[in-house]
Nucleic acid binder design. Structure first.
Lengths: 210, 210
DNA sequence: TCCAATCCTGACCATATGGTCAAGAGAAGC
DNA sequence: GCTTCTCTTGACCATATGGTCAGGATTGGA
């Protein structure tokens, strides 16, 4: 919100502008979808002339790619919490916490991701087939290890992961529905804590980790 | 697929054409989003000239409204299975089965619904505030009764419902992602059964119903 | 101060899209 | 057969949109 107190260097300008545009684009893509988003809307949201957007991002699709890719990175790194854990209660609990926090802090990004996947992942299909697949296989193996060690019930690791993704992202993607059912008001801090606790309680008990 | 063996009456023609158009529209809206969908695409999918669409549905928005409303009806009726039950294991188990079946049979509809809600429910906000809210309050009360009767663990009924919606709809909305992680192949019958079983096992155990 | 590189932007263009319309085809009732 | 109503559709229009471009402003360095 406040202007920087120094004259930015050239390279800084580029980075700042790109960040500004990407942030505006994320919001517009989330609210209108790829097809419904217009460069003009994004430009207005960023407070820049439309032509300026095309100076930094040649095409709408390139801008969209960047938005989706950036989100994907955040996604993957959320799982670090899971790896360091010694067992499912700690690991999966931490993962739920991390993903719920992302849903809370990056609802736009979550929606863009959801839209992209729902439309057949035209842009990030290669990511799904490489990064996400590798990531998933690693966690499936980790969960299977926990099962083999008797630390949790023998559930299908893949479906457990799907459930974790679905449940945590629901609070971002369907946030509007939840808000409406919450009397039209966004969840309070306390309610977010209750949500996290509910999710963790049901799932951790459901997999026999507590 | 087969043509009717009688000459359809006038009113039948209207109904048949509307159904045909709605079906095509559902698919296109699901795959491209509202903004990305074009009347021409829908017309091609239905095998009709574009102008013919406008004869039955004045505007794109009106057509979209009908699609969303029709889906919503299916949604609500899926819960009948839950009401007749005597306890959570039976009731919630049946609800999961029903919703998983809908995800399998109506993936397009689920995506359209998800898109609509993600974009702030511009078209069905009134439904959320009336039908869905009433419906939800009823089930929350039902679940609370089960809790009070000691038939399940004291979980927050609202968050349990969110989890049920999220998990079951994930198999439709993120079907493409699941398919990719499944080696690029759609889930087989057996895998769908395994998915249902996994979801039910984790959730029913998670709420202390089994 | 001068130069080159980067950044900015109003005006413009080709195209795609939602929607219209008038004329015609086909069926139902008399 | 004649009339009336419903249905069909190619041609057309106004507008919105992604993208271009030429020229100007600004900045950093020599």
């Amino acid at each position: 919100m406040t202007a920087p107190d120094r004259t930015p260097r050239r390279t800084d300008i580029r980075r700042e502008r790109e960040t500004l545009i990407l942030s505006a684009a994320e919001k517009v893509f989330a609210e209108a979808g790829y097809g419904g988003a217009t460069m003009q809307l994004i430009a207005d949201m960023a407070g820049l002339p439309k032509a300026n957007l095309h100076y930094y991002f040649a095409t709408k699709e390139e801008l969209y790619r960047r938005v989706v890719r950036d989100i994907f990175e955040i996604w993957l790194h959320a799982a670090d919490s899971m790896d360091a854990a010694t067992g499912p209660a700690e690991g999966i609990g931490a993962y739920i916490d991390a993903k719920m926090e992302i849903s809370r802090l990056h609802p736009h990004g979550s929606k863009v991701w959801a839209s992209e996947v729902m439309h057949g992942a035209p842009v990030i299909q290669d990511y799904l087939e490489t990064s996400l697949r590798d990531w998933t296989q690693g966690r499936v193996a980790l969960i299977q290890r926990w099962i083999d060690e008797g630390k949790m019930a023998p559930v299908d690791p893949s479906h457990l992961l799907y459930m974790l993704w679905a449940t945590t992202q629901h609070y971002a993607d369907f946030g509007h529905q939840i808000e409406t059912l919450n009397g039209g008001k966004p969840l309070t801090d306390r309610q977010w804590q209750a949500a996290k606790a509910s999710v963790k309680a049901i799932i951790l008990r459901g997999i026999g980790a507590i």
